[in-house]
Write a protein that binds this DNA or RNA. Structure first.
Lengths: 213, 213
DNA sequence: GACTTTGTTTGACAGTTGTCAAGAAAACGC
DNA sequence: GCGTTTTCTTGACAACTGTCAAACAAAGTC
């Protein structure tokens, strides 16, 4: 259908040097508002007008700052990454023992599961959409890599603290942990009380199996 | 938005007793055609007219056999389950050694990954959609349970053949394997040559870790 | 203060969507 | 054969979509 170009989303819009970050700030505001709507409704049910309605802007402004819908969504995805891929860094860096690392990681993980559910729902939605919409794939791939690295940092640190070595490679470790997390995200709405605890228990069970004794 | 009812999809349509399975056969034909389109385009981009166009029927027929769009999709999902949840049963039942089970399972798994990619893409898409569309959740939950049972049968048999016992519960085992499989499905289009082999290797690596030595 | 640039609003467009209803066609019972 | 029921076609509807452009307001420049 849409054979259109629009692969890169860099702003070739006229902008004086002093106002360039003002534009960027507007974009961020738009993106944040869009992410809120997207997280609630999902990709398929979110229209540009809905995004504009749930924001302080009108639907025309969206097209002033973004070329088209995909450009906006793509920007949102990339913006979203900056908020999540470094989520466990502090825990990983400061933990002095395997137990401290494990509990700290689990605390942050269940916390984001509970407090940022819509964002995680959106992420899994967008990753599914990227299988059908080619323009979404590069951004999704990038974030997937970021998350994989994040998990890998955790696992190598965990191995270090337990005096062992990772027993699986980075993509495998990420896929396993992500499988558990996605299961939790999907099931969270139906069982908000039990799911976070179950997730923590399962991660605790699995983590030791990912390093060699 | 849609507060509508339409939870059950049973046909309360007038139908003479002799023609009731004729209706069912038409529904199946519609569903099969719809699944083909859905698998190619994904949930968000598939319209009832597109489904009708890619079939031998007109768009009016769709509404004659299905109350609305969700009713059709829901039926498709349930129909889809019958084709996949028993996929590994023969391997599980006939395998006489852990190796035979493992290689047989991996063969079938990589085969369906390659040959039925659209169907798997659709499944992960629909599961994501179910987080936003309540009417989809019961069907998705049912299939998830079916798949979990399938993996559990595999794992218990594997433990049996290796003289060990499962080291994780059924939901955990399913989440882990499913995480690896979804990763493969997402990455398959970009790297059709390397992904199946990688998936096989990773499953081979992980399976032994899911039972106690 | 006049003028240009930048930002925003509003309204319109062409296309698509799900849904439905009226009527044609086919199948069926007798 | 005819009347009835079931199946299908066709065309229409209202609502919604992404996109755009022209009018408008604001800010900045000289």
């Amino acid at each position: 259908m849409t054979v259109a170009s629009a692969t890169a989303a860099e702003p070739d819009r006229p902008a004086r040097v002093s106002g360039i970050d003002k534009i960027e700030r507007r974009r961020v505001a738009l993106a944040e508002s869009a992410l809120k709507t997207l997280g609630e409704l999902g990709y398929a049910r979110t229209s540009l007008r809905e995004i504009a309605n749930n924001s302080e802007f009108t639907h025309g402004v969206v097209h002033y700052y973004f070329r088209d819908k995909i450009d906006l969504i793509s920007y949102c995805v990339r913006y979203y990454k900056t908020k999540c891929a470094r989520r466990y860094d502090e825990v990983v860096e400061t933990a002095a023992s395997a137990d401290e690392l494990s509990t700290g990681f689990l605390a942050k993980m269940t916390q984001t599961l509970v407090e940022e559910t819509p964002m995680h729902k959106l992420w899994y939605d967008l990753r599914a959409q990227s299988m059908f919409e080619d323009q979404l794939r590069p951004d999704v791939e990038m974030i997937d890599k970021l998350l994989e690295d994040m998990i890998w940092r955790l696992l190598t640190r965990y191995a270090e603290l337990t005096g062992s070595t990772p027993a699986v490679d980075a993509p495998t470790a990420y896929a396993l942990v992500d499988g558990l997390f996605e299961q939790a995200v999907v099931g969270y709405s139906a069982n908000p009380d039990t799911v976070p605890g179950q997730l923590a228990g399962r991660i605790t069970q699995v983590l030791p199996k990912l390093v060699t004794a």
